[in-house]
Design a protein around this nucleic acid. Structure first.
Lengths: 170, 170
DNA sequence: GCCCATATGGTCAGTTTTGACTAGTCAATT
DNA sequence: AATTGACTAGTCAAAACTGACCATATGGGC
């Protein structure tokens, strides 16, 4: 239900279109979840059925394609409050798909393994630099989310450094 | 394709049943990916179609329910080699669904926010203790995977500690 | 010898997710 | 005034995933 929590939380700040909700998540919360546009609409539909949010056609200025505006109901607010507390109080699972490769490191000779991991190190560095450079632009992004993400990338760099030195000794 | 890489890598160590492959992943690689049994069979089927692996009925000792044994083909070995290098050289995305709650921390009063995050801290600690306690039992687990996971949990603890002290100042 | 819990091995209908698409708007070039 | 590229808004058929289920086996306690 994390993605529902996210959509509810954003709608709580004001009525919005599916398009904008997805766009915001994609721009500023990409480190939290991977939510495609079609999935966003799917989830919104489901929440309408559950009565957590309402949908009305927006035929105000029709320069734009016809669109629906979503808004939170009271049931939705209650669901948000519940989901928020659950999310904060528990440890949410995190999956390191990059560790799958590490499980098979012994397949490669040490030199190539190091070379590949150095490429990964480079990729992490670039990611971090990019985040730092664009940090001011990301005022829309919730502060803690961005900071946690950047610290995590730093953690990954130190882990990789450590791993690389240990692989040298082999 | 990370899950395919994982299945291929395990099959590379020896022919195996779908059941065992899933079981191993669930026990020792749960931090890398979330792979349900039915999904494992689905992926195995697809890889058979692609010619990466072969399936033969195992009617050897029929005490057990009928079962199929999977084995790597040459095409599968080639795919494994390619996927392994891709996985190691790139930065694989990691999603922090726990950060969604952080984005809405301002909804709660500071005291409750701290209390909830302290519960999360407790949950992380328990997770870490559990891993440490069972570490010897996890000889099957690839060394780096386990170590990365434990270090990550320690990182999370320090992040939470820092966050909590900063929330006190509010 | 019987019952129950757990383990083995796998299937399938239903749910969830997504790539690719439609279709119009706006602003800047050409 | 036609072309291009980027943005707005949403849809749909196909692909991927999963909860719940079936069937047998094995071991232990009573």
């Amino acid at each position: 239900m994390e993605r529902e929590l996210l959509l509810l939380g954003l709608l709580r700040r004001g009525d919005n279109y599916g398009y904008h909700l997805h766009d915001f998540i994609n721009k500023y919360m990409a480190s939290c979840t991977n939510l495609k546009k079609a999935t966003a609409y799917y989830l919104l539909d489901k929440m309408v059925e559950r009565g957590w949010i309402e949908q009305k056609d927006d035929d105000s200025d029709s320069n734009y394609p016809p669109r629906r505006i979503y808004s939170l109901t009271e049931a939705g607010e209650a669901a948000f409050q519940k989901l928020l507390r659950e999310n904060l109080s528990q440890l949410q699972p995190v999956y390191f798909t990059g560790d799958i490769g590490l499980a098979f490191l012994d397949v490669l000779d040490a030199a190539e393994a190091r070379a590949l991991l150095q490429q990964r190190y480079q990729a992490v560095t670039e990611r971090l630099n990019h985040l730092e450079a664009n940090a001011p632009k990301h005022e829309g992004a919730p502060q803690w989310v961005l900071e946690h993400h950047m610290r995590f990338l730093q953690f990954e760099l130190s882990w990789l450094t450590d791993l690389l030195t240990r692989l040298e000794g082999v």
